[in-house]
Amino acid sequence: MFIASMIIKVNPEKADDLLESLKIFENITTYGLHKDDNIIVVVEAESIEDVEKLSKRLLTEFNEIKGVFPTYVTSDDADGMK
């Protein structure tokens, strides 16, 4: 299982709504809205490809998202990182 954190940069006026929308995603844990336009999320996925797909999906589906910036990636199975 891959675990990755990302900062989602959003339009501040839509940030609260977006935070709620993100909670619908099963594999996303949100860690709140910070400094007006930064939503911290942690994604859990079977493959790192799913993390990437999700990142792209967020960027394309939500116009209020200005950027998705990864900050950390690891695996709960160390061999998965090879």
């Binding site: 990755a4 954190s5 900062i7 860690y31 911290i40 942690v42 859990e44 910036f69 900050t71």
Partner: peptide
Amino acid sequence: TRREFLKNSAASAAAAAIGVSLF
């Protein structure tokens, strides 16, 4: 759990990037 530990580590790294502390 290891999973929780890793999740918290990941979230913490993101928080540090924007200058906030989660834990």
